[in-house]
Amino acid sequence: MSSFMRPQDAAGWATLVLAVIIILLGLPLVYMGAELAALGGSWYYVICGLAVTLSGVLMALGRVAGALLYLAACAFTWLWALWEVGLDGWGLLPRVFGPSLIAIAVLLCMPVLKRAEAAHSPSARKVA
């Protein structure tokens, strides 16, 4: 079983904080999104909420896959948003603006996650 990241520097801490924020943002999407789906509304939120929450957990574990999952969820969000409102600026704002900002932050954290994953991998241990 993997353990949580042990940040060594500012970049590491920033990554962990970002991961926690992503979890905190993902959980209400799951919770409220499940109710929305149950009431006959869109399934996007509960599905995306699960993916985002999982991506935050994986990032907190120092896994590159977490970042990749978040980026995939963001890409999926773009596709869904364009399907739902087309190229309408006001319509796109709530759907993609915030998630895309976070996606940029996730991209910036990628080197940290790669380092963390390398440190945990068996080959890295051999080298050490």
Partner: peptide, 10 residues
Amino acid sequence: SPIDQLYCRL
């Protein structure tokens, strides 16, 4: 954001 939009959809 998606969350307050979701709240309004609810």
